[in-house]
Computed example of a mutant assay.
Amino acid sequence: MGNPSIAVLVPCYNEELTVGKVIDDFHRVLPEADIWVYDNNSSDRTGEIARAHGAHVRFEPRQGKGNVVRQMIRDIDADYYLMVDGDDTYPAEEAPKLLQPLFDDVADHVVGDRLSNGTYGEENKRAFHGFGNDLVRWLIKVLYGFEFNDVMTGYRAFNRVFAKTLPVLSPGFEIETELSIHAVDKRWRISQVPIDYRDRPEGSESKLNTFSDGAKVLRMIFSLLKDYKPLSFFCILALVAIVIGLILGIPVVGEFMATGLVPRIPTAILAVAFCGLGCLFFTCGLILDTIVKGARRQWEIDVVRAYEDGK
């Protein structure tokens, strides 16, 4: 492909201290790229400064990073997309490394890995962020079978077909987790590129709330498990229900075997109910799994059409 178009996506909320430098750095490193800044209800001069530094600036009224990314993908057409935060924590000099696997056609989604080379641990001083990232990585490995080196990174690159077939559901900071799980579930080619990371400059504050946003991320993981792998999700619920039923029912069965009597009828009824609920969960999982497989077949057809439209 000659002269591919590159769009640098910069979601911003109150980043007047750093957005100008971020734009200048990407203009210098990727002079051929279009830089798009979406101002997400900033109360400072973020949009004004971004426009003065030569970026395309648009306004997104729905609060939350996920809402911004969703609208960016809808609005902007490019061959390749590079998503980066506007807080100047991700060096623009790393951008060619993220784009190269896309240029070489060996990846559809590239993840900027801050953790492997240790720079995130050295620079980031916010408590529990490292623990939260490790927890999310572990859950995705257990539930989805893929090991990410860094899930919560905001520095990513992807091609046009990945972008245009991406159903963004999350409204906020869960977007990184959703991108990662979508890439794994739909079997996109994933490349993980180690990058340097630097902490925010003095005076710039993170908008991420460790506990409330962390809870949203965990909820997103299990919500997508229900949507993408309903059989696994409902088998877990079925197992829990049946185990409870057995815990309640085994003593009752033991008493009946010993005495021929069932003195605890309410407990016996409750045990049967939990076992029946487990069977119901399992049946729901089988039905929904069939539906999801049908939707996946249709999605694969849509991806082929998206490739053809891009030629």
Rank of each mutant, 00 (worst) to 15 (best):
L99S: 12
P96C: 13
N133C: 08
E122T: 07
Q100T: 11
A95W: 08
G121W: 04
K125Y: 02
P101F: 08
V161Q: 15
R126D: 14
F128I: 01
Q100L: 14
D77H: 12
R74P: 01
Y81H: 11
P171Q: 04
A95Y: 06
D87H: 01
Y80F: 15
A78Y: 13
M152H: 08
K141M: 13
Y144L: 02
V142H: 13
D108F: 01
P96G: 06
V110F: 13
G172M: 00
G121M: 02
V106N: 08
V106M: 11
L169M: 15
D113R: 06
Y120T: 07
P101W: 09
F103N: 10
A95F: 06
A127F: 07
G86L: 03
R114A: 07
D85E: 15
V106L: 08
D113Y: 10
A78M: 14
A92P: 05
M83I: 14
D104F: 03
D88H: 13
F131A: 13
N149L: 06
N124Y: 08
G154C: 01
V168D: 04
P91W: 09
G154M: 01
P171H: 06
D105Y: 06
Y81E: 06
F146Q: 01
L166H: 12
F128W: 15
D105M: 07
N117G: 13
N159A: 05
Y80N: 01
I140V: 10
F158K: 12
Q100F: 09
V142P: 05
L143C: 03
V151S: 02
Y144M: 02
F148E: 00
A92W: 03
R126F: 14
G172E: 02
K164E: 14
F128Q: 03
D105R: 15
Y81I: 11
L166Q: 12
E122K: 13
D108P: 00
A107T: 07
T89V: 13
T119N: 07
E122W: 06
F158H: 15
E147A: 09
V168S: 04
E122H: 14
I76R: 06
L139F: 14
I76K: 07
Y120G: 06
L169D: 09
E147H: 04
V111E: 00
A92K: 02
N149I: 00
D75A: 09
F146S: 00
D108M: 00
V136G: 04
Y144K: 02
E94M: 13
V84N: 05
A163H: 03
V151H: 10
L166N: 14
Y81A: 05
F162L: 04
L99I: 09
D77N: 12
G172T: 01
K97E: 12
E94D: 15
S116P: 04
F131Q: 12
P96V: 04
D75M: 05
D75Y: 08
R114I: 04
P171Y: 13
Y80Q: 03
R156G: 04
G130T: 11
D134T: 11
Y155R: 01
A163V: 02
L143A: 03
L99E: 10
K141V: 02
S170V: 11
F162M: 05
D87C: 00
L169T: 10
W138V: 08
D150L: 00
